[in-house]
């Protein structure tokens, strides 16, 4: 058998091969900037997509934008001027971007109003509805998860309730709530947005099914966390089950739930459209449905871009929140050795 030592010890380093991944090593602020940047990029692409879709839509742009309004030379001239249809495509695009950047969503030729003003006047009721629904969802989810995780009978009851809630269309739940609480018991008003009590039923019908999904995810996450070795360690310190769940488990359970936030925002916005229709509430959803049915393209596009903006902004915030929740993802330079 040979014992030839092929390698001599203490060679100088052979190569100076270097590559750097700037973002991965940049620490928390750079990671945050990176997320914001990619969010803006998506938003820009979404705006561009809507511009392209208007250009590619069958028929000419004027009749697309005019909707079911009677086509008069005056209106046509106004549209041509607003969209710069006499200019080159690129100039139109730049002008379109510039307009949006200034918060100018153009004009609805059916409603004869400025869209930005229309949207901002309808923003508040929708905001109230979505915030209230979100509160319902979160309260339900946290309570259901913490109280039932890992307990056989409570969890199967909660699971059955959640399955039913998820499978119930929000608009039907709204109809049922209306029938029971407004028509029969006469506790809450049937429609409108005059006071807080008018918000209860819409918020419940929109929030409960979202809360059910969130609750399932949260419970699953909590159960997984309670089975991790660290849960055993924490219990070996003498901590009670309740402390273990709230102090240690909930934060772990929140991680998968937070990734759902994008889905949640999307569903709140989508659900608001339907809920407003059921309860006859004013709001963005209402004008969206009216716009779609009357082919009021400028309003539809404005709402679409706005919802993309909200969606992207919320997802970006959630991404950043995730970094704060889970220290393991922060690629800070201070990682210690020994």
């Amino acid at each position: 058998m040979t014992a030839d030592n092929v390698t001599t010890l203490g060679h100088a380093p052979v190569a100076s091969y270097r590559r750097r991944h700037f973002f991965a090593r940049g620490g928390l602020p750079l990671q945050v900037l990176g997320r914001i940047g990619s969010g803006m990029l998506v938003l820009w692409a979404a705006v561009t997509l809507s511009f392209i879709s208007v250009q590619l839509a069958p028929g000419d742009i004027v009749s697309l934008l005019i909707g079911e309004q009677i086509r008069t030379p005056e209106v046509e001239a106004a549209i041509r001027a607003e969209w710069g249809l006499d200019q080159s495509l690129f100039e139109q695009y730049v002008a379109y971007l510039a307009r949006l950047l200034h918060g100018d969503f153009g004009r609805s030729y059916i409603l004869q109003t400025d869209i930005s003003a229309l949207v901002s006047s309808q923003m508040l009721p929708t905001l109230k509805l979505t915030v209230a629904a979100l509160a319902v969802a979160i309260v339900y989810a946290v309570a259901s998860a913490v109280l039932t995780a890992g307990k056989r009978i409570p969890r199967s009851i909660a699971g059955g309730l959640e399955l039913t809630l998820i499978s119930t269309p929000t608009f039907w739940l709204g109809i049922l709530l209306l029938y029971v609480f407004s028509f029969t018991l006469k506790i809450f008003p049937v429609s409108g947005d005059r006071n807080l009590s008018a918000l209860v039923l819409p918020a419940l019908s929109l929030g409960l099914s979202l809360g059910a999904v969130l609750g399932q995810v949260l419970r699953e996450g909590l159960e997984r966390a309670l089975e991790e070795p660290f849960a055993l360690t924490v219990r070996s310190w003498g901590a009670s089950d309740f402390v273990l769940r709230l102090r240690h488990g909930l934060r772990h359970a929140a991680l998968p739930a937070v990734t759902l936030a994008g889905w949640l925002v999307g569903n709140l916005l989508s659900g608001a459209v339907i809920t407003e229709a059921v309860f006859g509430r004013p709001g963005l959803g209402r004008i969206t449905v009216d716009a779609v049915l009357s082919h009021d393209m400028p309003v539809v596009l404005a709402v679409a871009i706005l919802s993309a903006l909200i969606y992207v902004a919320m997802s970006t915030m959630v991404d950043i929140l995730y970094l704060l929740l889970d220290p393991r993802l922060r690629s800070d330079a201070g990682r210690a050795k020994t």
Binding site: P229, F230, T233, R235, S236, W237, G238, R251, D326, P327
Partner: peptide, 20 residues
């Protein structure tokens, strides 16, 4: 009793301590 009378150590502290 736990922690007071008897302490307990598991393997692999990466998962046996709360990572968060």
């Amino acid at each position: 009793l736990r922690g007071q009378e008897i302490g307990f150590v598991l393997q692999d502290a990466l998962v046996s301590l709360d990572p968060l």
